[in-house]
Amino acid sequence: MHELSVCQALIEQVVDIAREHRATGVERILLRVGPLSGVEPALLTTAFPMAAAGTVAEGARLDVEGSPVTVRCRTCGHEAEVPPNRLVCPACGDYRTEVRSGDEMLLARVELITASAAPA
């Protein structure tokens, strides 16, 4: 369950961003996580409240957006969506492909609450 370590790293980044923008709270965090990143979105969602407790991100909503595994063949140029354990080119069968998406583990967007959001 390394998702807790990943969440702790995420919280450090979010806390820095909130400080930069003088935010009083964090409303929503959007991640982009592909199946080849080695991180399980459901476990991230479970670990998040523990990592966020006592920080400016406590109570924030965590959304995790998936991404399909796609490869581009270096031999024939074909680009296709493939299963995570079958990264060969579905057109010509060559294994010399590059992963175009599906290995991301990214903090995509943070929605902050700033002081002016507080009721006057």
């Binding site: 990943v6 923008h21 990214l106 903090l107 967007r109 929605e111 902050l112 609450i113 700033t114 959001a117």
Partner: peptide, 12 residues
């Protein structure tokens, strides 16, 4: 007063 910050930075 809500601010959306685009980041696109690796989680690790």
């Amino acid at each position: 007063g809500r601010v959306a910050v685009h980041v696109l930075q690796g989680l690790l």
